[in-house]
Design a binder for these strands. Structure first.
Lengths: 337, 337
DNA sequence: AAGTGGACTGGAAGCGCTTCCAGTATCGCC
DNA sequence: GGCGATACTGGAAGCGCTTCCAGTCCACTT
């Protein structure tokens, strides 16, 4: 460490040096009103000379605003956190926060213990606002945050009780897009592998598929439930082939499941996309690494994070922003040209 | 929000209700000494009844400890942050922090603006300790943290000036492992695609390769520099094939480059692993999705995060832990059986 | 010349907690 | 029974900042 533990200058010393009172110095620094041009200049000079940096803790105590926002991820399986999805969300959040003085706190809760800790952090008001990610069903966390009178923005939507403020990808629209792409390519017997129907995304993507099929007057009942994972995709595809050996296309509600489906199709001797076209959802890196590369629905994950943070900032400023649905788009690759 | 903004109970009220003075209440809550059994019980009861949660800001001000640690990622290309590497590190850090009262702050700095912000956060001592990730060369951040007299733990090692406290994977050992595997499989003309030689990992992996080759009495000069990316791997492999058309194996210093190398080899009509065996480094998810699946070196990324956090905690407690090198191991898949 | 409003100032009271320290019970011991 | 030692207690002084509020000062009106 080396350097002697030098005491940092306080506002008092700045004021002293600038020849003004502490309150003036404070106002000058937070550029509030009622500070003369002279005083402001003198304070700025003193700040520079002393290398003064305000003590955020003291400020927080005085204003009772922590100056932080919390990103909470509550999920039993943190392996899921490894999904690039989260990283992109965080990059987006970071970008939005960069324009402010807010600092991001991150809390992952996988265990009961972790959730208690999260609850304590919330209750202690270490953060002025909270962003919730990957809520399963009716996560108690949401209710807690609500009851604590803290601004909450949810990324994605929990299944029960639509939160007042959320940012989500347009899952239903994306699934329609995917299905319509298959239809317009002339496919007729289009099956779907659905994701966990205990998540909003799982349901919405299923619904989008059914809508597109209905609009085209096709049979939308060839569906097989699964769980968003690659292994789940393999199993679901295998079952689909047994039940509907004549299918000519599959919409999988996640890229991981789509990758699994491709593996199962190949194992069954079907060629992709000739015999069976496959479309996924998410546009994860894996979509470029399947063979053939995966046609999929891209969702703007980074924008999701950014909009979540923006919405939270608005909320903390007392505004009443509207929930946001982010547009998705089709990325055509080889698995469904 | 609904609920009226109820004022939270303060320590004073707890003390009043428990029939003790505030200082006793404080000591009871922080279970310090000089509190009678009776007093302690009464305080605990009052805490429960009032649902008292201490105000961390006030505590921080009084003790001048923020109760937080910062994870700072300073890198020009935040696309790199999407790498599951970071997510795993964070999961590890989170796990170590869960046992304490420390909260994690996350700051990504890609722009100059972001770096200034990071510097301000450090200077303001919003965090009691800092973990640095992905330092390129001699990041000024490290020096700053040092000069601020803040405990710093570096994940990975910057190229210049070994930091006092770091946790790193044993890159050199891993690269030796990889190369030795190829050698013991009977390969003779083993080339290497190296990663950025302005990073410690890039250099150490290069060195491990050379050592293994030297020990076996083989020519370790067939190397081609690259940049850790898949595209870089394609280009480097292409150049290698031009220069050494007879090579029979490649060690790529990252999985991404290895994936690129495989693509380039296939494009050149070489079969993997028959004509050319390939070994990567990192054991990222992509290693399972290449065709053939990639033999690679696994590094314990989650443990890396966990150990970083543990080391930082020790450091903040005034201890002097030792730098840590985490063992890597070989994962054999199809690309180099 | 006195009065009025506006622009600015600075003393002082907190924000909720920790912790020093002087003080008071309580105890064992000879 | 009196002594010091020990175990506890609670008042009070901060930690560094914001912000209210009672003033001061000045430039204008009428």
């Amino acid at each position: 460490m080396g350097a002697q533990a030098q005491r940092r200058p306080t506002l008092d010393e700045v004021a002293l040096r600038a020849g003004v009172s502490r309150s003036v110095a404070s106002r000058a620094i937070n550029n509030a009103r009622d500070v003369s041009r002279n005083a402001r200049d003198a304070v700025q000079k003193a700040v520079r000379e002393l290398e003064y940096v305000p003590n955020p803790t003291a400020k927080a105590l005085a204003t009772s605003r922590a100056g932080t926002v919390l990103l909470a991820v509550s999920h039993d399986d943190l392996g899921l956190f490894a999904d690039p999805f989260f990283a992109h969300v965080i990059v987006g959040i970071n970008a939005a926060l960069e324009k402010t003085d807010l600092v991001l706190m991150l809390l992952l809760a996988d265990s009961e213990r972790g959730r208690e800790r999260l609850e304590r952090v919330l209750r202690s008001r270490r953060a002025d606002g909270i962003m919730l990610l990957a809520l399963h069903g009716d996560d108690p966390l949401y209710r807690l945050a609500q009851s604590l009178d803290l601004p909450v923005v949810v990324g994605g939507r929990p299944i029960h009780g639509e939160p007042t403020w959320y940012v989500d990808a347009d899952n239903r629209g994306g699934a329609r897009l995917a299905t319509e792409h298959l239809i317009s390519a002339g496919r007729q017997r289009i099956a779907a592998i659905t994701g966990g129907q205990d998540t909003h995304a799982g349901m919405a993507r299923h619904q989008g598929y059914r809508e597109a099929m209905a609009v085209a007057g096709l049979d939308g009942s060839r569906t097989e439930p699964s769980d968003f994972t690659e292994l789940g995709g393999v199993a679901a595809m295998t079952r689909l082939l047994e039940r509907y050996p004549d299918l000519d296309a599959v919409f999988a509600a996640s890229d991981n499941m789509a990758a699994g489906a491709i593996r199962a199709l190949k194992a069954a001797g079907r060629s992709v996309p000739e015999d069976v076209a496959v479309v996924g959802f998410d546009d994860l890196p894996i979509a470029r690494n399947t063979v053939p590369a995966l046609t999929t629905i891209h969702q703007p994950v980074q924008a999701l994070g950014q909009e979540m943070a923006k919405m939270l900032i608005d909320l903390m400023a007392g505004e009443q922003p509207n929930p946001l649905l982010l547009r998705t788009h089709l990325v055509v690759r080889a698995s469904a040209p």
